[in-house]
Design a binder for these strands. Structure first.
Length: 641
RNA sequence: GCUCAUAUAGCUCAGCGGUAGAGCACUUGCUUGGUAAGUAAGAGGUCACCGGUUCAAGUCCGGUUAUGAGCUCCA
């Protein structure tokens, strides 16, 4: 039998050889660290017999694939067994690997909490210390069903029953033990390959991810080849928690939430300063990109929402208001706008539009309210009241491609200025709940896809994820610690203009329906500010920082000089505060540093005598003495985007 | 919306049947101190809300609301 290795070398082995034999043939070191094998592109257990001439490569424990297999074995063989040992009356569901770790879902009548994790870890370590070999046997459907029937594992039986494979069910065993798991494999050849792990959390999860099904208990863990790697991972989680915008928002006194208005932000002075800076920045960008800013009502009669289709397709997300009958002559049902589009069409509809008016680009910092389910809210990232940097472009079909290009330019320009260099594009097509005919959707999807294709941007297709009125492009940016955030959106709509009677007079003198493009760059200010805070760990770029400079006195006799300095900076438009309190300079430095003020000027007798300032920047532990006027000049220069 | 957990002083948290605690912050003294916490004293709480058990409830039980972690949504 001939085995071709990745380096194209060919080895001749006796028929009936396994992956382990191949590894041993290459070298004893490899045989020692081998955990599985890839045969003709398929991952197999190390001791599976290779049936014919094949290409193969050995998976070692220290490779990516090896780590993945180790996590898988840890979940399916160790965690599952530990759970069955501790909770014999539970039923096993599934236990896959995920990024950095694994989880196992079980159904249990006893509730399992984080306090139980230590106990489970102990049981897992006991199982691992046996260093048992893992063996498998191939069973027919009937045979496999029999095994899991006798073990009283209903979920495993369901998996087997719903499987379209006939007989190739793999049952994994550990030495003489009675534990069996159904698994597609591969697994480690034995438990001595298990590295360092930690169970991290417990939560509920639906069987097969469907909220109509039973809620199972899901136990999460993370696993690595060494203690060092495990600790590195645990540290990076801690680091991410340190930049949680909810924590920083409190520490920096930017905003708060309270029970009476769940999902609605109370912006404090410093938080609102960031908001206004960001808004002015976007305003300037869109104005120079041919948009005109408008503003439309928050509360609008249901009739308009019926006409737009929102009442039908979006009602469960809408806040409805009703006038108190006793005080009103007529009863009217209104909705708080969840989107700005119908309002924009109303402004478009005032007066007759010509093809010469197109493309017409309306922009609005539109405050929207959506009734999000209670479990989905998350700080500033997912709220019920938010303001979009919204815009609607009314144009002809011929203009779609150029508008797509202009928008992507605007978006990448804004992202770059805010410190985000990378973004990905996703093309989403018709969802199940939608308005408009399939023919219209065909046209819209084709138009958007050909626009993005012709412009040459790479994109990924996401079928069925479009808005109810049209297909869209979504823009996903990557932050400083590699997380992805979907922010910008560009949605092509061939329906709404028609529904709300928007028209224009074409060159032919006849009436036509314009194409409407819904678009946003940041998405919402609330969410985007949350992203900015986390991206920068609260240390915002100078132009965005709510307090830019704090001038702190070291002794009270320099107070007049401190006030003078503040005046100079304020005159240059720098947001500057003084700290004249009777406290030590180290106390003041600590306090303003923890509030992430970019620049602290410490002022003592020397500075006053020489007309200088001592500059300390956030993130740096030294200070630099500089001539006052030069400092004003230099820092003013930094106050640009 | 679902599962589990949590809710005590402005903040972070301890207390878990028997007159409400700590650190920081706050106020007032003293201290004018050179780059991440000077010092002493004082003030501050219907223990989320509603109901139940008990001689007695932050403490045990039920419900409501909110928050957190997931799930499901959303985009």
């Amino acid at each position: 039998m001939k085995i071709t290795l990745p380096d194209k070398s060919v080895r001749d082995l006796p028929d009936g050889s396994s992956g382990y034999d191949v590894a041993k043939d290459i070298g004893p070191g490899l045989a020692k660290s081998a955990v599985a094998i890839i045969v003709n592109g398929e991952k197999k257990d190390l001791h599976d017999i290779i049936e014919k001439d094949s290409t193969a490569s050995i998976i070692t424990i220290d490779s990516e694939d090896g780590l993945e297999i180790m996590r898988h074995t840890l979940a399916a063989q160790v965690l599952a067994k530990a759970l069955k040992n501790l909770y014999p009356k539970s039923y096993l569901a599934i236990g896959p690997t995920i990024e950095d770790g694994f989880y196992y879902d079980i159904e249990t009548s006893q509730s399992i909490s984080v306090d139980d994790l230590e106990k489970i870890e102990k049981e897992m370590n006991k199982i691992i210390s046996s260093k048992s070999s893992i063996t498998k046997r191939i069973a027919s459907k009937k045979d496999a069903l029999k095994v899991f029937k006798s073990l009283e594992e209903p979920y495993k039986q369901t998996i087997i029953n719903e499987s379209d494979q006939k007989d190739n069910f793999q049952l994994y065993y550990q030495d003489q033990d009675s534990f069996v798991d159904l698994c597609k494999g591969p697994h480690l050849p034995n438990l001595s390959f298990i590295g360092s792990f930690k169970l991290t959390k417990v939560s509920g999860a639906y069987w097969k991810g469907d909220s109509k099904n039973t809620m199972l208990t899901r136990i999460y863990g993370t696993a690595w080849n060494s203690d060092k790697d495990l600790n590195k991972h645990l540290n990076s989680i801690e680091e991410a928690q340190k930049r949680d915008h909810r924590k920083l928002g409190k520490e920096m006194d930017l905003f708060h939430f309270q029970d009476e208005a769940p999902g609605m932000v109370f912006w404090h002075p410093d938080g609102w300063t960031i908001y206004r800076q960001l808004q002015n920045f976007v305003r300037q960008k869109i104005e120079s990109n041919g948009y005109v800013e408008i503003n439309t009502p928050l509360v609008i009669d249901r009739k308009l929402w019926e006409a737009s289709g929102h009442w039908d397709k979006y009602r469960e997300n809408m806040f409805i208001t009703e006038i108190d009958e006793e005080h009103a002559n007529e009863k009217r049902v209104n909705a708080l706008k969840p989107m700005n589009c119908p309002g924009h069409v109303q402004i478009y509809n005032q007066g007759i539009k010509s093809y010469k008016d197109l493309p017409l680009r309306f922009a609005e910092f539109g405050a929207c309210h959506r009734y999000e389910p209670s479990g989905t809210m998350h700080g500033l990232m997912r709220v019920r009241g938010f303001t979009q940097d919204d815009g609607h472009i009314f144009c002809t079909e011929d203009q779609i491609e150029s508008e797509t290009g202009l928008f992507i330019n605007l978006l990448s320009d804004i992202y770059a200025d805010l410190g985000f260099k990378d973004f990905n594009i996703k093309l989403s097509t018709r969802p199940e709940v939608r308005v408009g005919s399939d023919k219209t959707w065909d046209k819209a999807e084709q138009a958007l896809e050909s626009a993005i294709k012709n412009l040459g941007y790479p994109y990924k297709l996401d079928e069925g994820d479009g808005a109810f009125y049209g297909p869209k492009l979504d823009f996903v940016l990557t932050d400083a610690i590699g997380r992805a955030w979907q922010c910008g959106t560009f949605q092509l709509d061939f329906n709404l203009a028609d529904r709300l009677d928007a028209e224009f007079v074409g060159e032919d003198g006849k009436k036509h329906i314009p194409v409407m493009i819904h678009r946003a760059v940041l998405g919402s200010f609330e969410r985007f500010i949350g992203i900015l805070i986390e991206n920068y760990s609260g240390k915002l770029p100078f132009w965005l920082a709510p307090k830019q400079v704090v001038v702190a006195s070291i002794v009270s006799e320099v107070n007049d000089y401190v006030m003078e300095i503040q005046e100079l900076f304020k005159n240059k438009g720098i947001r500057t505060e003084v700290d004249l309190r009777n406290e030590k300079i180290s106390y003041k430095v600590r306090e303003h540093s923890s509030k992430k003020v970019p620049i602290i000027l410490a002022i003592g007798k020397n500075e006053k005598a020489n007309n200088t300032v001592s500059i300390r920047r956030i993130g740096s532990n030294d200070s630099k003495v500089m001539d006052l006027n030069k400092a004003v000049q230099e820092i003013t220069k930094e106050n640009t985007i």
